[in-house]
Nucleic acid binder design. Sequence first.
RNA 1: CGGUACAGCCGUGCUAUCGGCUUUCCGGUAACGGAAGGCAGGAAAGUCCGGACAGCACAGGGCAACGCACCACCUAACGGGUGGGUGCUCCGCGAAAGCGGGGUAACAGACAGUGCCACAGAAAAUAACCGCCCCGGUAUCCGGGGUAAGGGUGAAAAUGUGGGGUAAAAGCCCACGGCAGUAGCAGGUAACUGUUAUUGCGGGUAAACCUUGCGUGCUGAAAUGCCAUGUAUACGGUCGUUUGAGGGCUGCCCGUCCGAUGACCGAGGGUAGGCAGAUACAGGCGUUCCAGUGAUGGGCGCCGCAGAUAAAUGAUAGCAGUUCCGGUGCAAACCGGGAUACAGAAUCCGGCUUAUACGCUGUACCGGGUG
RNA 2: UGGCUGGUAGCUUAACCGGAUAAAGCUCCAUACUACGAAUAUGGAAGAUGCGGGUUCGAAUCCCGCCCAGCCAU
Length: 120
Amino acid sequence: MIETLFRDGKAFSVFPYRVIYMPARLTTNKYPVQAGFSVSSRKFPRAVDRNRIKRLGRECYRLQKHQLYEALQADPTQLAVFFIYTDKKIPDFPTLRDKFSVILKRLVKENKMQKSVGKA
RNA sequence: CGGUACAGCCGUGCUAUCGGCUUUCCGGUAACGGAAGGCAGGAAAGUCCGGACAGCACAGGGCAACGCACCACCUAACGGGUGGGUGCUCCGCGAAAGCGGGGUAACAGACAGUGCCACAGAAAAUAACCGCCCCGGUAUCCGGGGUAAGGGUGAAAAUGUGGGGUAAAAGCCCACGGCAGUAGCAGGUAACUGUUAUUGCGGGUAAACCUUGCGUGCUGAAAUGCCAUGUAUACGGUCGUUUGAGGGCUGCCCGUCCGAUGACCGAGGGUAGGCAGAUACAGGCGUUCCAGUGAUGGGCGCCGCAGAUAAAUGAUAGCAGUUCCGGUGCAAACCGGGAUACAGAAUCCGGCUUAUACGCUGUACCGGGUG
RNA sequence: UGGCUGGUAGCUUAACCGGAUAAAGCUCCAUACUACGAAUAUGGAAGAUGCGGGUUCGAAUCCCGCCCAGCCAU
């Protein structure tokens, strides 16, 4: 699943994240989206820092994912998304929360455009 | 009392809202839902040692390689720990001898052998440059010989002091010492210490090769066992079938065992999911119990305490705790602001090493105050 | 998870079974040549053994512990 996502998925960047996504058939019907998070060990050699960034990212996504769910409620296809952290500094919670708001709006928009192109 | 350094201990708590992983039980064909419980460290780190465990059909022997190195004990084991011995060093007492205490040491062998010791110096290891002494000669000098007392060089120069002795000298001889070997006696489990006799005295380096003693079979949880899915018992080449290719996860040799629908190479096809291993044991906590100087062992009581696999153990807010700075106040205290480390399990244990804010304890040094 | 290499001036390399001042090229600066540069020639300067400890008379070299960089197996 992750391999095909990285090979065939569409991508865009909103600092400090690079987002890879694609429509997919997931292993469960319970949720419309599955998401993954990663942090480079080259940029953050200590495991504590990587854990901190991943936890913050997951938390920001969790608090705002309802936007994405509502947007996807209309059509039956599911979505696989991957978030790669690209900054070299450890973020703080409020700014990262705002960034995720932007990212999720962009994701909804990109997905719609992809749909309309596919139909056309 | 304060500061600095080192060693050891400790290494935050509560509430609210929203989550995550996991164990057991209940419901459900299942997906999943509900209830109860648990959820990161002293170093989880570095991966420097030692084991457990697993595989290699776990005969065996030799060489090589690697590791360790005062002694005894602890331990599953160790290169770890405890206690002791010796050397070095520091402190205290003392006139000194010495006694007491602390720290520290890769602490077997240089009397098995080989190598190396720059520069300087006559000479760096079976030492004659100057000097001293003797003899000979063509005699202010040259040649031969003796001599390690004196000189200077160097990191290091041939056992110290005194006496005898001699041409001059020398452990050449003697006395008292120093160091080392051997043997005896006494103490000690031992290292070793004391003492007597005797032999000897030409340095350092083994974190140079090496010698001696002891130890180590190799591999490493991505090990290994099983289940599921799927393909190609096809193609080309080499070797071989009891006269043995090749292999048995050890570098070599011997030996031994396996071995024919075989082994290896090339090119290609398929799979790359799951379960076990894997969390109940060298387990944790407590103990004014017992043995021991101690490491540690035994007894007793209580507890069940992470188990993931693109990898959970969290996020936000508030309050409290500790501490620093500023202000108010006689003080207690209050108000405002800041700081709160190092760091994240990955098969599991025992050590070692390294990183660590605040606080506590101890030791050393420095400074100040009081008596 | 296991294993293996390496760390020397700003850069690229020497000196690696110990020997004193750590060498060379490129670089840099000045002068000459030129209208000005480049090139060339001459002269000159600065600068390094990753860090801490040990062995030794003496350590870049030997040993131990850290730090950093890179590689391999799967």
